[in-house]
Design a protein around this nucleic acid. Structure first.
Lengths: 348, 348
DNA sequence: CGTATTTGTGTTATCGTACACATTTTTTAA
DNA sequence: TTAAAAAATGTGTACGATAACACAAATACG
């Protein structure tokens, strides 16, 4: 690799001053066609690329990045996201960035809306958020429409024009679960999909996972899975009677991170044959994974979603690094053995 | 976050000039104890961190990074690594780095040694390599001993003093495979470990995987697995007679990326009941994964190993970013469904 | 006591880019 | 033809860290 060429090299080659080159580069006008031609030719010939380091130093602004995240104190599912964000913040502590965290109440769309608007008023240069509520998200996006603000989301997909989305293919994760159950009981299979409906915000997620699971069953000539939705109240009663009604059940797929609650019930009635699959590396889930009540966990990796997305945003602002419009993380299958390797992963 | 403090702020606070501050920062002497005390205090109080961007700009050197990699033309296992490296190179094309690739012959330790020494003569600032041969690696490391060169490895672990290692816990991956087989045939299980010994360089890898597999079996009261090593010659004959001898075999664990060769044989004799687990997302493996002959693949993710490691090296040189001494990547379990999500992963 | 030498300190140019401002050249109008 | 306006181009400084250099004050030594 030959040494990098600078603006000065271009200027010399084209026989003009660096100021003129700069004007061409930034299309600020006030340049004769003749000079412009020569400069453009020189840029091409020398394959000039501006030095992003120098640009960043020059601009010298403190990039303000808003992160709009559900409050982990209100729903611990978001704890790993917060951790990921914090890690990235300390990773870039030496750089001129200012990450402002806005924690909204995941059960109140208004809280989301208000904090989104607050981020706008605070004049953030980028907003990285979980678009939990469709209508409110649109309202926020409208606000930012004119402003030159980098908009990035994670966890929940969104149709709107967003610069970046980091997440997972939920349909595929449902199919993956179905395949795992199918593997472990290779006949026609009698399976159940359990939705645990704590807050309606997960509805979309659960539906997509279910859809994937069912599509696998159909394509592979399996019996259609049973479906049941459990709420916090009468959780155990309902589940137990469901199990009694379906004695021949071979596997259960829990579409949320609360598989441990199902495991608890299964344990209490000494039901050991049923294969149980759930989501996420929560401590409660891991405990039952080690005991063998939970057989597989699917890793949604919210932490990586958050940290990777924020990193894309930061590196774009700082170093002008490009990023993909959509980044779908791999669907991790976790059993009692490789769990460790995913937990260690946590710390960078 | 308050605005970043600069060397100038420190100078003002301590009532000295920036030159004096710089001398303290770099321990270049020529500073009175009184000034030093004041400066150190100011640095502490303002929590001063040097701006890595400015430092890099000032230093302005082109960092030369040597990458010592087995030639993918001679062993296609390394193709993804090369791709990962190339991706990172283009990702940082705007920065002042010069990545020099040295392709050695993975079947000839001498080739490895020679290119390692060549990298030294070329005066690289960092060397990122696969330490395939122990003795030769030590010889190379000795060379670099005095020089202030960043040494990083991937894929093959090493005891020596290396700044960074990116890889996987091989023992754990063997355990993971055992757990998967156990899940799919929940009695005492009759399993076989198949080593496919193409080149001795894999010996260490294979041994560790076997070790993990066996330890799982012991801990879980399973039968000890059978072990067989196959060479290219008489591959099929040997395998077929092995299968005939053990009609009740329930699962096979192939410790290399050549599970597809075993799958080919199983297919040819219409053996469908045996569960087959292998390594790596090769096209040949994926084909049999979709067909159902291969049931699981374990993802060693050589591409991420290479790209992540190189990225650590580059970001350390460019931005003084820190990295862990050892980075063990998660052990990915792949079935026919989530394979897609890992393949998509390939492109950044 | 005067000249060397050491020690402490401040000033300044540099890296590559960006932009305000100064200066020169060209065009237009009187 | 010449002054004014417009267009084109060059110059200087800043971003923050670094280090060579200049210079003063303090100390050493014959």
């Amino acid at each position: 690799m030959r040494a990098k060429h600078t603006i000065k090299d271009i200027a010399e080659k084209a026989g003009v001053s660096i100021g003129t080159v700069d004007r061409v580069l930034h299309e600020r006008g006030r340049v004769s066609k003749a000079s412009e031609r020569k400069i453009v030719a020189a840029i091409k010939e020398l394959d000039y690329k501006p030095n992003p380091i120098a640009q960043t130093l020059k601009n010298g602004i403190v990039h303000k990045i808003g992160v709009l995240l559900p409050n982990p104190d209100l729903d611990s599912f978001w704890r790993p996201c917060e951790e990921g964000i914090q890690e990235v913040i300390s990773e870039y502590s030496a750089f001129t960035i200012d990450v402002v965290l806005y924690y909204f109440n995941p059960f109140k769309s208004k809280s989301f809306l208000q904090l989104g608007h607050k981020a706008y008023r605070d004049g953030v240069h980028a907003l990285f958020f979980v678009p939990l509520f469709d209508r409110e998200t649109n309202s926020i996006l409208e606000k930012f429409d004119d402003a030159d603000v980098l908009l990035a989301t994670f966890n929940s997909p969104l149709l709107n024009t967003i610069d970046l989305y980091v997440g997972q293919d939920l349909v595929l994760s449902g199919r993956t679960a179905a395949r795992l159950l199918h593997m472990s009981s290779p006949d026609k299979g009698k399976f159940a999909i359990v939705h645990i409906n704590e807050s309606f915000e997960n509805a979309g997620h659960m539906r997509k996972k279910e859809q994937g699971f069912i599509s696998y069953c159909i394509e592979n000539g399996l019996n259609a899975p049973l479906t049941i939705t459990l709420m916090a109240e009468e959780f155990k009663t309902k589940l137990v009677s469901f199990l009694e009604m379906h004695q021949d059940l071979q596997g259960i797929f829990v579409t949320t991170s609360k598989a441990h609650e199902v495991a608890k019930v299964l344990d209490s009635i000494n039901q050991e044959k049923i294969i149980l699959i759930g989501y996420d590396l929560l401590d409660e889930n891991l405990e039952y994974l080690q005991k063998g009540t939970i057989d597989f966990l699917i890793h949604q990796d919210p932490k990586t979603q958050a940290s990777l997305g924020l990193r894309y945003v930061i590196e774009n602002l700082l170093f002008k690094k490009e990023f993909p419009k959509e980044k779908l993380l791999p669907i991790g299958i976790i059993n009692s053995e490789n769990a460790k390797s995913y937990i260690a992963q946590a710390s960078v």
